[in-house]
Amino acid sequence: MPVTDAQIEEAVRIAREYGATRVVLFGSAMDCPEHARDLDLAVDGVEGWEFFRLGARIDRALGLPVDLVPLDPSTPFSRHVERWGRTLFHVA
């Protein structure tokens, strides 16, 4: 089942409800959505347990697995995602 633009938009909408200040798409849903089996998102602005609640909420709402990665604190992986991923939402 492909990942659709509508699913990605819904994930961003939910992330914004949780206070996300930035959402970055990466992985198979960015590179080849028609073959993606999950949605990989990096998120900034959601901390603690709310981060995990956000991941579970997106997963339930979309009906597909979601891999959620924090952008803060900065790590080599998060910097890679920021460089090569596609920013879907960012509050300046």
Rank of each mutant, 00 (worst) to 15 (best):
P76V: 11
R60C: 09
R16G: 05
L41T: 08
D38S: 10
P65V: 10
L25A: 06
V3E: 01
R37Y: 01
A29E: 05
S78R: 14
R60A: 04
E9I: 02
S78F: 09
T87E: 02
R13I: 07
A15Q: 07
V46H: 05
P73E: 07
P33E: 08
V23Y: 07
F77D: 00
G63R: 11
E10R: 15
F52K: 03
L54R: 04
T4M: 12
L71K: 09
S74I: 06
A61W: 13
I8S: 08
E47P: 02
A6C: 06
I58A: 03
A61N: 13
V3A: 09
A56Q: 02
D31R: 13
E47N: 12
E50L: 00
R83P: 03
F26V: 11
E47G: 04
D44Q: 05
L54V: 08
L54Q: 04
E82K: 03
P2E: 10
S28R: 06
D44E: 07
V12W: 11
R13F: 09
F51C: 12
I14W: 05
I58P: 01
V69F: 00
D44R: 07
V91S: 06
V91F: 11
D44H: 01
C32N: 14
E82P: 01
A92H: 08
T21L: 00
G85Q: 05
L41Y: 08
L41I: 09
A15D: 06
Y18M: 06
D5Q: 10
F26K: 00
G55N: 11
H35K: 03
R37N: 11
R37G: 11
L62P: 03
T4D: 07
E17T: 10
R37P: 02
E47W: 12
H90M: 14
I58K: 01
P2R: 14
E82A: 02
G85F: 03
A36S: 09
R53N: 02
A11T: 12
D38R: 15
R60H: 07
F89R: 10
H90V: 15
R53H: 09
L71Q: 04
A11M: 06
S74T: 13
V91P: 07
V12G: 00
S28C: 13
D40W: 07
A61M: 13
L62H: 08
L62V: 15
R13D: 00
M30S: 04
D67T: 09
T87A: 14
D38T: 13
G48S: 08
P76L: 12
A6E: 14
L64A: 12
C32P: 05
P65R: 14
Y18W: 05
V12Y: 04
R86V: 15
S78D: 04
A6G: 12
L41H: 04
M1Q: 05
D72P: 11
R13S: 03
H90A: 15
A20R: 02
V43Q: 06
A92F: 08
D40P: 06
V66P: 11
T75V: 01
A92T: 06
L54K: 08
A42W: 02
H80V: 12
